[in-house]
Simulated scan of single mutants.
Amino acid sequence: MSFSLPGFDLDAFVVATLAEDLGEGGDVTSAAVIPEDARFTAVMDTRDAITVAGLEIAAAFFRALDPDVRVEMLVEDGAQVAKGTDLMRLEGRARAMLTAERSALNTVQHLSGIATLTRAYAGRIAGTGATLLDTRKTIPGLRVLEKYATRMGGAKNHRMGLWDAAMIKDNHVAVAGNVGEAVRRAKAAGIAEIIVEVDSVDQIEPALAAGATHLLLDNMTPPMLRGAVTLIGGRVPTEASGGVTLETIRAIAETGVTYVSVGRITQSAPAADIGLDFSPV
C-alpha cells in the first residue's frame, strides 16, 4: 500500500531513522547471531486498548530492509481496538526484521499514543458541538506525523506552522501598541486568516472591528467563556485554549465555543504498549 502525507517524505524519514540506529557498524547482534538465510514470521499486537496510528509508516521500515517482506495489515489507522488485538503480520528475512523492529515500534507506539489520548479528549466533548483542535506543541521534525495521529484520534488540525495563518498574541500586541493596531497591520499585509488571542472581554470588540477572523479565548473560566461567546454572537469562530484537561474540557466545550485546542494531546501523550512477537519459519 502506498502511504503519503503532504509535506512528509516517508522514504527520507525511514532512511534517517534507520541510519540513526545502525550507525557505521550496522546491527552487530543480528549479524553475529542470526544466520543470513533465516526467516521469521512476526505478529505486531497491542497490550493496551488504543486508537491505532502509524501502521503503514512502521511497515515501511521492514520493507526498506527487505523489499520482499510480506506484510498483512489486520486493522486500519484510526481504528479503536481492544487490548490484545493483532495489528499486523509479517514474514521475511529474520535479520532485516530484527534490525527494523525498534524503529517501527517506536513510530507506531508514539503515534498510537497520540491518537489514543486525542480520542479520549474528543470523546469527552461528543455532543457539545465543539471541535477538538491540536496545536504546534509537537516534537521538532515530527509535526506532520503527530498531526496525522491527532486526526486519527478525532481532532482537527489547527495551524501547521507559522505560515498558514496569523496568530496575534500578547507579545505582538505589546509591540504594536494595542489589539486593534496589531490586527490592522496583519490585514494590511494581506493575510486572509487572522487569529487573535484575547484574555479579556474588552479586547474582543477592538479585535473584531479591525478585522479578526477567529478569536482565541485564552485561559478563561467557563463563565467568562459563556459571556465572551454571547458578546461575539457568532460573528467569528471562537476557540477556548489554555490549561485544558480531560477533567475540564467538557465544561469548556459546553460554553458554546466553536473549538477547544489542547496542547497535551501531542505534548503529553504516553506511548502505546505495542509489541512484536517473532517465530522462526
Rank of each mutant, 00 (worst) to 15 (best):
T41Y: 07
V281W: 05
H158S: 06
V28P: 05
V244D: 12
A122M: 06
G243T: 05
F13R: 04
D21W: 05
M88L: 15
L105V: 02
G211E: 05
E72Q: 10
R119W: 13
T248G: 08
V75H: 11
G25H: 12
H214T: 00
D45T: 06
V52N: 06
E197T: 03
A253E: 08
G154I: 08
K169D: 09
T41S: 14
A104R: 05
F61S: 10
G242N: 04
V281L: 04
G141D: 10
G54D: 03
L231Q: 15
I265R: 12
V198H: 07
P6G: 01
V179K: 05
E91F: 15
A188D: 14
H158Q: 10
V236H: 04
I195G: 03
S112P: 02
R39Y: 06
G242M: 03
A96L: 04
D277F: 10
S279W: 00
L208E: 01
S200N: 07
E146Y: 10
L132C: 01
V173N: 00
I34A: 00
A166N: 02
M160C: 02
G243H: 06
V183G: 02
F62T: 08
A58F: 10
V229I: 11
A174N: 01
V236G: 01
A100F: 01
A186R: 06
D21S: 02
P270A: 14
R93D: 14
R93Y: 09
P237D: 02
A49W: 06
K137E: 11
D11T: 12
A182R: 07
V15T: 15
I34G: 09
H158R: 13
P35M: 13
F3I: 14
S4W: 01
G127C: 05
T116W: 10
M167N: 11
E193S: 13
F62S: 04
Y121D: 13
E101V: 11
E247L: 06
A79P: 10
T255M: 10
T29L: 11
R136P: 06
R119N: 12
I195N: 09
L65P: 01
A212D: 02
R143C: 01
T107I: 14
V75A: 12
V175K: 05
H172T: 07
R264S: 14
G54R: 02
V75R: 14
G141I: 10
H214F: 00
L162E: 06
A210K: 00
S112C: 09
R63V: 14
A58D: 02
D199K: 04
I114H: 06
K147I: 12
S103K: 01
A166P: 02
T29Q: 12
G123V: 15
R235I: 04
R119I: 04
G243R: 15
E181Q: 11
G154T: 11
A186W: 01
R136N: 04
L18Y: 06
R264P: 06
A100L: 03
R136H: 05
E101W: 03
D66S: 00
T116Y: 13
F61M: 05
R89W: 14
L231F: 03
G263D: 10
E247Y: 09
N157S: 13
A104T: 05
G84Y: 04
T213G: 02
E239T: 04
V229N: 07
G84N: 13
E20K: 03
N219P: 01
L18H: 03
D218A: 12
F278N: 00
L10Q: 07
G92I: 07
S261D: 09
A251K: 06
R226G: 15
